[in-house]
Every structure is written in structure tokens, then in C-alpha cells.
Design a protein around this nucleic acid. Sequence first.
DNA 1: TCAGAAACGGAAAAGATCTTCCGTTTAGTA
DNA 2: TACTAAACGGAAGATCTTTTCCGTTTCTGA
Lengths: 213, 213
Amino acid sequence: MPPADPAPARPLRKDAQRSRQLVLDAARALFAERGLDVGFDEIARAAGVGVGTVYRRFPDRAALAAALFEEKIEDLIAAAQSAQAVEDPWESFLQLALVSIRLQQRDRGLLEVLASEAFGDPRLLELRDRAAAEVQTVVTRVQDAGLLREDLTAMDVVLMLHLFSRMSLADGTELWQRSLVLFLDAVRRREGQQPLPTPPLTFEDFEAIAHRL
Amino acid sequence: MPPADPAPARPLRKDAQRSRQLVLDAARALFAERGLDVGFDEIARAAGVGVGTVYRRFPDRAALAAALFEEKIEDLIAAAQSAQAVEDPWESFLQLALVSIRLQQRDRGLLEVLASEAFGDPRLLELRDRAAAEVQTVVTRVQDAGLLREDLTAMDVVLMLHLFSRMSLADGTELWQRSLVLFLDAVRRREGQQPLPTPPLTFEDFEAIAHRL
DNA sequence: TCAGAAACGGAAAAGATCTTCCGTTTAGTA
DNA sequence: TACTAAACGGAAGATCTTTTCCGTTTCTGA
């Protein structure tokens, strides 16, 4: 009994493979620079193919984004994991913050995918959840070490990283670092801190907020 | 020699006055709810007049915004001044923060005008500068009282208030308060604080950043 | 080499605003 | 009341982006 792959899907013809790749390359560059809502016609022009070809390969923005950002989010997860390898928990936390901001600073599309409901694409959503889980791990460790305030959640951190990433995209310079330093100072554990008001942020809160920012 | 008002401008006809007011009322509500880029046709429909009438009275969005947001920014300035009346400098600072976030939470258009270059309208720009000056006053006072870190600028504060206002618009709830508490905790003066990196934020920095957020 | 399927490009249809224009209506004045 | 100028509504033209469609070209494998 042969494996019943619902779509045996013969490989794309050679010219089709080539133009698919041209489209992906063009879209990668444009999404990184200008975000997810670049026009399809512009992608086609940059790729040197007709619009029809873009639509044939990627019926909508979601298909294109899914193909491109899986890899990108995996980069982010890998970066988070390598931050976990840092011995000192606070340094590990710091490295996670810097790396994740930098990745989003270099790719506006990545920021938008992470902050949106990712077109409802299950693969992207799952990867995003895995990235959030990595943040959770780092946060828990630095909390267990007594260095980070206990009432902070990983989602507070994710939300803040999102805001700093946005800032880093918005200013050409490095002014966002001022705000990051303030934040880091604020979340350090310290005697006599006032507890945070309102219930902790959940993942759903983050989604709802970031999506509409 | 009679006063040479360049446009003696006879008063609008009664029906024109009426429809001007209808348009302003409709635009006020729509801008507050959905921000500055509501379609003119939608404003016309909400006002119960034709699009032509909207264009006749307000040649572009800037004219409409100028007419509406002068008053709004004056409200903000008034709120800042009444915050200055609070005796305790820290409380005064806190009240300024809360009031300014609330005003922007209730009016997305106001937030957008404050963060944009305000269509280049000189009146709006001047009012915005005056609002920033009020923040400066409050910040200086709380710094002079030794309660706020010295290396923070009024523009750091303005930028943060902008971010929290955005958050307060984006979440329907009050979760932004968590972040505000973190921020307030971060900016309190305290022994052994690390100095902030990168040069202080200028007004131009704020404009450039907020505009592109 | 050749026939048929797959893929291609880009014109054009479909949608969404934005803006102008003009025939009709209404207010103000004599 | 009647005339004129101001104001009105909304259809139509101008743009811009999204999406479909089809005549032509290119690949593949018999």
C-alpha cells in the first residue's frame, strides 16, 4: 500500500521553479524593507515576472508569507536558544532581548508577522508559539535566579520587545536603546517594588494588543 | 485707514453654516473612533450631506483636522496645566501621565495628530509645541525635587506616553497600566542607576520616531 | 521532433478611494 | 415676489491596487 499522499504533486516545471524562486527573493527583500503590504504588482516587477506568475504560485499574501517567514521565525527561535546557553541568567535575558530586537529591526515583515495573527496560517502560528515558549524559558530562569521581578510575565517581556523593535524600525538611529535600558532597569528585582496592577498579560492579550498597534 | 483684513469674508449663508457644523460633528466622532484616515465620503454620509459639501467647506484633511484638533490640543494643555497645580511634584507628574494617556485613549485622531507632522499646519504645530513645553515644566519640577532621574528628558517622557497611549487604544482593557507602572518605577531617581545610553531624545527625534511608528 | 500540458506576461475587469464638476435647490436681497 | 449668488447633492472622472483571464511561449516525455 503506497503512502497515500493526497497530492502526489509532480515537481514544478523548471521554468516554474525558477520564477517561484525569483518571486521569493524579491518578496523577501521587499517585505524586510517595507513590511507585509507591498503590492503584488511591485513584487512581480522586482522579480522580473508578470503579476499572473506571482498569483499562480502564491494565491494570496498568506501563502507567500508562510513560505518566507517560517525560516525567519526559526532563526529567531535558534537565537533564543543560543541565548539560553549563556551562563549568567541576566546576561542570557539581555542577549535574548538584543537579538530579538535586532532581527525585527532588520525585517519589518518579521515584526508584522509576529505581531499579527499571521494570516491564520497554522504553521506560522505554531512557530510563533514556540518562539514565545523560548522567551518563557529565559524569563523563568532569570526569575528563579532572583534577578527579575516575580510578577512580570513572559508576555510583558514579549510586548515590550515588540515595542522596542517597532521603535528601532522607526528611528534610523539607536535611540531605542535608551528606552530599553529604562525597561531593563524597571524589571530588575529590587526591594520595595510596588506590585504591578491589572492581571498578568496572556498570550491572547499580547495578540490583541500588538495586532492593533 | 480701515483694517486691511485680506479677506473681509462675509459670514457663511445659514445653510452653509449648518452643514459645516454637521460635517464637523460627524468628523469629530469618526476621527476619535477610527483615526485620521476615515474617507471623506464616509464623513459625508455620517453628516447627512453630500461629499461635495465636505470638500467645499474643507478642501483637504488638513483643514478639517486643524478645525477639530486645535480645541482638543488646548484641552490637553489645560489638563497639563492643572496637573502642575498639584502640590507634590511626583503626583503632579503622575497625573500628567494619566490624563494625557486618557485623552488620547478617547481620541485616536488626537493621538495621530500629536504623533504626526500635523499636515504641516502651523497652528497645530505651535499648539503641539506648547503641549510639549508643559510636559517639560512638569518634568523639570519633579527632577528638581530629586525624584526623577536627571538624565531623562521631557522627550523620553513624551515618547513613552505616546507608546502607552497607543497601547491603551489597542487593548480594550487596562493592561497598559502594567507597563506604565514599570515605566514609572524605572524613571524614579534611585542610587546606583546606570546612565542612559545614546544622546538624549530631542523633539525632532520624537517626531521622526512617532511619525513612523 | 512534436504534441500536449504547464507556465508565462500583461491587458483588462473589479474594487476602492479621492476629487471635480454641473444641473438643481435655497437663502438673501431688492 | 423675483432675481442672483451661494450652496447643495451625487454622478462621473481620475487613481491606485487587487485579481482574473486568455492568447502566446516554453518545457517535457513519448
